[in-house]
Nucleic acid binder design. Sequence first.
DNA 1: GCCTCTGGATTTTTT
DNA 2: ATCCAGAGGC
Length: 712
Amino acid sequence: MNVLEGLNPDQRKAVETVEGPLLILAGPGSGKTMVITHRIAYLIKVCGASPHSILAVTFTNKAAREMKERLYHLLGSTVEQLSLGTFHAVCAAVLRREGRAIGVNPSYVIYDDGDQLNLIKRSLQELGIDPKTYSPRILQTAISAAKVQLLTPEDYGQRTRSYFDEVVRRVYQQYQMLLVQSQALDFDDLLMRTYQLFQGHPKVLTRYQSRYAHVLIDEFQDTNLTQYALARQLAGKYRNICVVGDPDQSIYSWRQADIRNILNFEKDYPEAQTVCLEQSYRSTQTILEAAHDVVSVNRERKESKLWTDNEAGPPVMVVEVYSEFEEAQFVVREIGDLVDRGDVRPIDCAVMYRTNAQSRVLEEIFIRYGIPYQVVGAVRFYERREIKDLIAYLRLIYNHHDDISLMRIINLPPRGIGQRTLTEFLQWTKTLGIPLYTGLERMTEDRSLCPLNDRAVQMLSNFFNLIRDLIERSEELDVRDLLDSVIKLSRYREYTMEFADGEERWGNILELRGIAQDHQNLKPRESLASFLEGVSLFSETDELDEKKDLVTLITLHQAKGLEFPAVFMVGMEEGILPHFKCFDDPAQMEEERRLCYVGMTRAKKRLYLVRTLRRSLMGGTSANPPSRFLRDIPRHLVKHVDVFEGVEVAPPVDARSLMIEVGDRVQHPKFGKGVVVSCNSIRDDCQVEVSFQDVGMKRLLLSLAPLERVEE
DNA sequence: GCCTCTGGATTTTTT
DNA sequence: ATCCAGAGGC
């Protein structure tokens, strides 16, 4: 198959220009992904490049996986040799292999956001700084910003200007010391340490430079300074570096992404060629036009405009309702109508919002109306307590220097190690400057070494023996069997079941066990390592289910790169989109605008912009004016809808949820007639199972489902 | 040491 | 509205 087939002239140029630096500016729907995959295929098939010599970096693991699949289809063979992944994943792999050179233990663990925060809190404690005066969150951002600029604590000290800077420096230093002691790397370290490795060890760098004859970076507008520095290092020998991006879709500056990278690219590679992909194959003319009119208000922007051969399509629907409940109801009904008319299937629809908190009401209403949906990343699987606990066990087993994990589980399930014991134990290890696990080991060997009372020492030793036992077992068991041992020996299952939602938690644990199962058939140690790495670098968009016929509920940020025939953007209000935290900063406001642009351009055919007059936020209610972005869409592209004028809304919950019993005959607006077969009280609500005449068994929450009892 | 209660913060987005 | 940390009682 010809890899140039079906490409327009610009796309073709983007694929064929394989020598020298290349900047591809690719608007939404311009076939960017196709260009990237075809380019790689072209390199391999036409130019004879070895897959081994190609490095392709994507924004998410999911994008990497999809690219692999597409390549497989294009090339008809696997591309095992190809380096393809996120910057973080690529760096993680490099550091496992080469980290020793800069003192990184190959068995390092990766600390996520929450671990980081814990470590910062501990740093504050050790430094005697009040976390109320200096919020750990803000310090975390400051430290991350420093790392992305490749500043060590010492470097940072050179440029402190204010007392706050000085605090940051001290916390950064302490935090970094603790990280090193825990043999842990945070997300920023993965990048920064790899950079340092290359910088300090030219031989290693040369090896990688010689390997990677072709470097390709996707979503370049959302890379940070370190990532670009790494890309430059790696492409240093051949200078065949191709970056693909769209400045209008830059929405991650808060995560230190730096749009200057695009400008610097042209400075750093003056010989660079540029290709603009301006034909959109995704959206209708109407949607494209409306989106352009929103984003082109930005001042810090290079003008570029997409065009399309697609039809004009229906107008953009701007919908006004009175509350967030009606907002959700509108979405649900409209999707229902579209589906009934045969226009779309649920899987073709997405509801997009600015903040995760907005998904709650939507979910409620989706459940009530029985519309199948999936929420991307709201309650993150790996953020769940029971999952984090068990992963902490595994991490500690993998690397017993990992103090954060140890602290997390030292008394989980409760084993008689209280605050007092802990404080004294921490104090003791700190004076000796040893990791906690080593402290436990020493105290178990010789009780007289430490100043704690007998009972405390006994409890701590019990914990030590448990972990030591598990470490021993880990030498022979793969990760799933190891996980089983952890659960068994720590009595975690019994502990879990004590909770009201124990069953659900246990279900999550079984799911984790299933994931562990995917890392079998490796040597025990590798099995554990591969599992932990997967878990650390996992992102929620990765698990978006594309097979089941479900409506997608998703944040605007996560929606980047996706497309849907019908898109509902909800919360189009001042304070939500744009978010009020951005009001006083023009640069952030421009980013909000781009975020709006990203959302709008996800739509292929139908776009709904919904706003509500009143919205409850953190307890109180507020009335927000319509989003300024709505004003920027010309009227001839829009149709206004005032949906709930005179339309009945669902009756208040308590009026109808009274007294439903097993055997009652009920009526549901969507499902029709049915019989209640079971009633289970959940907290102050009641979950009922109803056998419907037409659609079979459904499980519903009484407070949410518009069920009515009918007499027979 | 462990459980429960209260007050305060907290929600922008995530590799 | 919900989650968390710290205080106080058992």
